[in-house]
Each structure stands twice: as structure tokens, then as C-alpha cells.
């Protein structure tokens, strides 16, 4: 089944006879996680944009948390529209409005996202001067000598960003293990 599913995702399986795969992938369990994994691996290997972890869950949560401000407008339309129905392209307008409200909520989610992002980005810039003012005297008091504490993240970051990645192999094999 997994091989068939993999072939289906790669476009190497007859779609007409793939109903059982779709059905069992939909019903959850191992085949569903395979479906998710295979797509993620495929996206990464092809170099497609990959959404960050739990992206869909976060979008769903954000949509649920979104106040339904736009809905009353939508609900109001039929009652206003009743009288005009024969003469106007009411249904077209309604569809448009519906679409528009979806677009608006997507935009709102994006806006919130951007705001959060910007806040995160701005935070350190705003914080930094205050922190320095508070802490600057420490420098004059007693700078702690570098002890046995190795900034592991720094070694990793250095090896990941260096134009020549020689030490990468050691780093990958050992430094990352203790995490989590």
C-alpha cells in the first residue's frame, strides 16, 4: 500500500484504481502519516516552499479565533436584496460578497500574522538600549571568565554558515544529539 501511495504521489500510479489508497489515507492511521510525510519529503527535495511546522493548525486556530465581524453584513444582504431580486444580479453580488468576506478574513489572518512577525522583529531593537542601560555596569564590575561552558549553538551556527563545511560531519553526528 505504501509503495502504491508513493507511486501515486509521484504520478506513477493509475488514478482510476487509486480509490482504496485515497480512502484509507483519508481515514487516518499510518497511511495518512505516510501521505503527509511523502509530500513533505517531496516538497523539500524539489526545493518547493515548505510551510513551517503546524502551519495548517495555526491557520485553522487563527481562523477560529477570528471575530466574525463580516458575517452580519452578509446576513443582511438577502433581506435588503429581496425587493430587488428580479431586477438585479443579486446572486452574483452575493457570491462576490461571500468571496470577498473569505478574502477579507484571509487578509485579516495575514495582517495579524504580519503584525505578530513585526512585533517579534521589532522587540529586540526596542529592548536592547534599555537592557544595556540596566546591565552596562556589570561589565565594569566583574566580567565572568569563560569557563567550561561551551556555547554549543554558536559552534553549530558557525559550522552551518561557514563557506566550507568540513566540521559539519562531526557536528551533525554528535552536537545535535542532546537536544530534546
Amino acid at each position: 500500500m505504501k509503495n502504491q501511495l508513493s507511486a501515486l504521489i509521484d504520478g506513477e500510479f493509475v488514478i482510476e484504481s487509486s480509490e482504496h489508497l485515497i480512502t484509507s489515507a483519508k481515514s487516518g492511521g499510518e497511511l495518512k502519516s505516510c501521505w503527509v510525510n511523502y509530500h513533505l519529503i517531496g516538497d523539500v527535495m524539489r526545493g518547493d516552499a515548505v510551510m513551517s511546522q503546524n502551519f495548517s493548525n495555526r491557520v485553522i486556530n487563527a481562523l477560529e479565533a477570528e471575530p466574525t465581524v463580516l458575517l452580519p453584513n452578509l446576513a443582511a444582504i438577502p433581506s435588503i436584496g429581496d425587493g430587488y431580486r428580479a431586477a438585479t444580479k443579486q446572486s452574483g453580488y452575493k457570491k462576490f460578497t461571500k468571496l470577498w468576506s473569505v478574502a477579507a478574513s484571509v487578509a485579516a489572518v495575514m495582517f495579524v500574522g504580519v503584525m505578530v512577525l513585526q512585533q517579534q522583529l521589532n522587540k529586540p531593537v526596542q529592548l536592547a538600549p534599555v537592557e544595556i542601560a540596566l546591565v552596562a555596569p556589570v561589565e565594569k564590575l566583574a566580567p565572568v571568565e569563560i569557563a567550561q561552558s561551551v556555547p554549543t549553538e554558536y559552534l553549530q551556527a558557525h559550522q552551518a554558515a561557514a563557506p566550507n563545511g568540513n566540521a559539519y560531519y562531526i557536528q551533525n553526528a554528535s552536537y545535535t544529539e542532546p537536544k530534546q
Binding site: E145, I146, A147, Y154
Partner: peptide, 21 residues
């Protein structure tokens, strides 16, 4: 050869470090 320079603000509760290893 390559060298990385890391800079971070010293925040409260952080022990500033100096020296070589």
C-alpha cells in the same frame, strides 16, 4: 578558512564572558 562573530545584548541574569578557549 572562516570565522564567525556572534554579538548579543547582555540581558538581565546573563553572565558576561571573557577569555579564550
Amino acid at each position: 578558512a572562516s570565522v564567525s562573530l556572534f554579538i548579543e545584548p547582555i540581558t538581565k541574569g546573563m553572565h558576561p564572558k571573557m577569555g579564550h578557549m
